[in-house]
């Protein structure tokens, strides 16, 4: 549940989601669910010329199982908070 909570805190921020098929999409994080499915708004594809079919896609739903990376804004990570949360999770509480 840690990363679910973590992603929920990132809602509203600009992120780049890289998929397992190498497609990379940048957009505003709209919402996440327990499968780490992601909804993005105001999306644009990083390599637009290679993916012409994505031209008119503004909002999208990405299935959690196909995500390889989520690139976050540098100030989007509170390392100490994440450390504490990870330890708490590891202790089972």
């Amino acid at each position: 549940m840690l990363f679910f909570s973590y992603f929920k805190d990132l809602v509203g921020q600009e992120v780049t989601v890289e998929l397992k098929n190498d497609l990379a999409i940048r957009g505003t994080l709209h919402s996440v669910d327990q499968y780490l499915n992601i909804k993005l708004e105001n999306t644009r594809v990083v390599d637009q010329d290679k993916y012409p079919h994505m031209l008119s896609v503004r909002n999208c739903f990405i299935r959690g199982s196909v995500v390889r990376y989520v690139q976050l804004p540098p100030d989007g990570v509170d390392v100490d908070l994440l450390h504490d949360a990870a330890r708490r999770e590891a202790r089972g509480g």
Binding site: L19, N21, S56, V57, I62, V66
Partner: peptide, 10 residues
């Protein structure tokens, strides 16, 4: 399981 992305078209 075959779905990668569902996009809303502008």
């Amino acid at each position: 399981e075959n779905v990668v992305l569902i996009g809303e078209l502008d």
